[in-house]
């Protein structure tokens, strides 16, 4: 079976920390950071390598800050 791995890039300065992406992720890859961005929001960040590039987080992100990459190995 082909394995799929993915990665997301979050534009932390545009992220408003709404947490809508967190329940959307099936592999619990995203969590809020302890640090804040320039606007004072706790931004979303990846906490493990389980991302499969399903793009669910990017699809629900109201501010469109998530870019998704996926590669088959």
């Amino acid at each position: 079976m082909a394995k799929v791995i993915g990665d997301i890039v979050i534009d932390i300065e545009r992220c408003k920390g709404c947490e809508v992406c967190i329940p959307a992720c099936p592999h619990d890859v995203i969590a809020l950071a302890k640090n804040v961005n320039g606007k004072g929001y706790h931004y979303a960040e990846t906490i493990n390598d389980k991302c499969t590039g399903c793009a669910n987080c990017a699809i629900v992100c109201p501010d469109g800050v998530i870019t998704v990459y996926r590669v088959k190995i």
Binding site: G6, D7, G53, A55, G64, V65, I66, T67, V68, R70
Partner: peptide, 11 residues
């Protein structure tokens, strides 16, 4: 992984 050819979704 973060290469243009692997891009799935962007704004």
């Amino acid at each position: 992984i973060r290469q243009e050819k692997n891009l799935v979704y962007k704004k």
